[in-house]
């Protein structure tokens, strides 16, 4: 495992992703969801919205790192808002 060069923050990051995936699976088994249309141009399921939310978050981070000198926490905050908005109304 030494060559993988783990650090605490990345371990937490992957742990969180794994937890979200497990959580989504359990949620889906308990109450299966149907496709619906929100503000996104296509009909999406819960899983699709999670993917769009996470991908969008990654791009928010890149945008803020690339063109501004703001702290990375602003990007993270924006991403959380974006993720929530997509999950709720997307």
């Amino acid at each position: 495992m030494g060559w993988m060069a783990w650090t605490l923050p990345t371990a937490i990051f992957f742990g969180a992703i794994a937890l979200i995936l497990v959580g989504m699976t359990v949620w889906e088994i308990r109450s299966p969801c149907a496709e619906r249309r929100g503000f996104l141009p296509i009909a999406t399921t819960r899983g699709d919205r999670l993917f769009i939310g996470l991908l969008g978050s990654a791009y928010w981070h890149l945008l803020i790192l690339g063109v501004t000198d703001w702290s990375i926490w602003i990007a993270s905050l924006l991403s959380m808002l974006w993720l929530f908005a997509v999950m709720r109304w997307g």
Partner: peptide, 9 residues
């Protein structure tokens, strides 16, 4: 995962 680890160090 390895790439992500490398990218922050």
């Amino acid at each position: 995962m390895t790439v992500v680890n490398y990218s922050v160090q």
